[in-house]
Simulated assay, not measured.
Amino acid sequence: MSDQDLLARIDRLESLDAIRQLAGKYALSLDMRDLDAMANCFAPDVRVGRDKVGRAHLKAWLDDTMRLQFHGTSHHLGQHIIEFSDADHATGVVYSKNEHETGPEWVIMQMLYWDDYERIDGRWCFRRRLPCYWYASDLNKPPIGGLKMRWPGREPYAGSFHELFPSWDAFWAKRPNKDELPEVAEPAPLEGFLATMRRGAADPKIRVR
């Protein structure tokens, strides 16, 4: 192994750790309402909504959201899959189980983030975070059935937890023949697990609520 190869592998390991730390920093800064720390997890020219750009706009949006919707929150991170397109760009999926103190109810949520990461001036940042929700419901009201996003004071609506991955609908659409062994696809290429699972699906459109 050449020195250049060794340095590249060390850089990849350091980048993996920095990206995992980034997800943890996002959760901690959000829960502790440190909006500067939160905004600085994102690229300086992060897009906010349809027509705003920059960390200041992100901070303003976060301030409104946190004050109007929640008193306390807690974000618990789960598995985190990260794949690189080059040394300074990566994509990832990270699970998050969240708790929200919101008015008279204690809302629990299961979701995942589809992330794009970029290294800018030596520091890994979120280029984009796409939140995909499975459910949100009062702690004492299990989210059985459809329309699992159930916030107090709002009409229930469907989340987008499964929309990134066509395998969910394909699984339920066709029952296998029990008399035949199923075919098994070839393993996904290195740095291609997520793309293989996505099967070319478009990003879901997340409704802002």
Rank of each mutant, 00 (worst) to 15 (best):
N98Y: 07
L164F: 04
I108H: 03
L194H: 02
F193Y: 06
M109H: 13
F193A: 04
V184H: 00
P152E: 05
L112C: 14
G92Y: 00
Y135G: 05
A158K: 15
F70D: 04
G146Y: 09
W114M: 12
Y95N: 13
R119Y: 07
Y157P: 11
F171I: 12
W168E: 07
A195K: 08
K141T: 10
A173T: 09
R128M: 01
E163Q: 06
H71C: 10
R123E: 09
P143L: 13
I120S: 02
P182I: 03
H100M: 15
M109D: 15
C125I: 08
W106R: 12
R67Y: 14
G122E: 15
D116H: 13
S85Q: 06
P166C: 01
Y113L: 04
H100Q: 13
T102P: 11
F84K: 03
P187E: 01
P104L: 05
G122V: 09
C125W: 09
V93A: 00
P143D: 06
P166V: 02
W114E: 13
I81C: 05
I81R: 08
W106Y: 15
S96A: 13
T73K: 09
L190M: 10
H76P: 06
E163C: 06
G92H: 00
D116K: 10
Y95G: 14
P176D: 09
W172V: 15
Y135L: 06
D121Q: 13
D121H: 08
P156E: 05
M109Y: 12
A185E: 02
I82K: 03
D121N: 08
E191S: 03
G78T: 04
I144S: 13
H75S: 01
L112S: 12
R150C: 06
K174L: 06
H100R: 10
D179K: 06
V93W: 02
E99S: 08
I108A: 04
W134S: 03
G122K: 04
D64P: 02
Q110A: 12
G72C: 14
T102H: 13
G72A: 11
G92T: 00
H89K: 13
P152H: 02
R175G: 10
Y133L: 09
G122F: 07
L194K: 00
L181S: 07
A136Q: 07
G145S: 08
D121F: 11
S160T: 08
I81L: 10
Y95D: 15
V93D: 02
I120H: 06
H80R: 13
